[in-house]
């Protein structure tokens, strides 16, 4: 792969991959690491991909697998049974409320969603992948993707509603990044 081709690939996908990584890792440095690692894996193994139309799906799949591999043993894994049971209709949150929120607040709300729902939900909202591609990337059946989207949206809207009631507070980590004290 030429440098130019690799650069084009990076430019086309790195921002979406980073945002996906950020939703999973909940840490900007870890998300950067994970995104870089994904492209390194592409650089060493990606040439084996014959259908270049699937490179986007390949990258998201690889990032998710790298995330699962790097996750430390002992970290709490949310079981579907333990996940908060929600009714079919999510908590009410208005469009105007979300529109007025800072992007980092919405991301923070997403990061509070149970991990098992967070991955498909992020991929859905980044809109780069169809539900079928999400199913392939996460290696779960299509029905499971739909179920997790449904429950994930419910949780997300509950978190958004909670944040809207407490005010538009920028997460502390974001604040520390922006305000550097010498």
């Amino acid at each position: 792969m030429t440098n130019e081709t690799f650069t084009q690939l990076v430019d086309a996908h790195y921002t979406a991959l980073y945002r996906f990584a950020l939703s999973l890792t909940r840490s900007e440095p870890d998300a950067c690491d994970l995104t870089q690692q994904t492209f390194y894996v592409w650089a060493t193994k990606g040439q084996a991909l014959r259908d270049l139309a699937k490179v986007k799906s390949w990258l998201f799949t690889t990032l998710y697998r790298e995330f699962l591999r790097g996750r430390r043993r002992g970290e709490r894994v949310t079981s579907l049974d333990a996940a908060t049971a929600q009714g079919d209709e999510p908590a009410a949150v208005e469009v105007d409320t979300v529109s007025a929120m800072d992007a980092s607040v919405v991301m923070a709300a997403l990061q509070e969603v149970d991990e098992v729902f967070r991955a498909p939900l992020t991929l859905f909202y980044l809109q780069d992948l169809s539900y079928q591609e999400i199913a392939e990337s996460l290696d779960v059946p299509i029905g499971t993707v739909m179920s997790r989207l449904s429950r994930g949206k419910s949780q997300l809207r509950s978190r958004l509603a909670a944040k809207s009631s407490t005010g538009n507070v920028i997460p502390f980590s974001e604040f520390k990044t922006k305000e550097r004290h010498g």
Binding site: R19, T44, T122
Partner: peptide, 28 residues
């Protein structure tokens, strides 16, 4: 929601880190 998530800031040096790091570290 999608609009907000797609507006989340990406570290300004990430692109360069990926491109330079790949040149330095990755080898076919």
């Amino acid at each position: 929601v999608a609009g907000k998530l797609q507006a989340v800031a990406v570290p300004s040096d990430l692109r360069e880190s990926i491109l330079v790091g790949a040149k330095v570290s990755a080898s076919p």
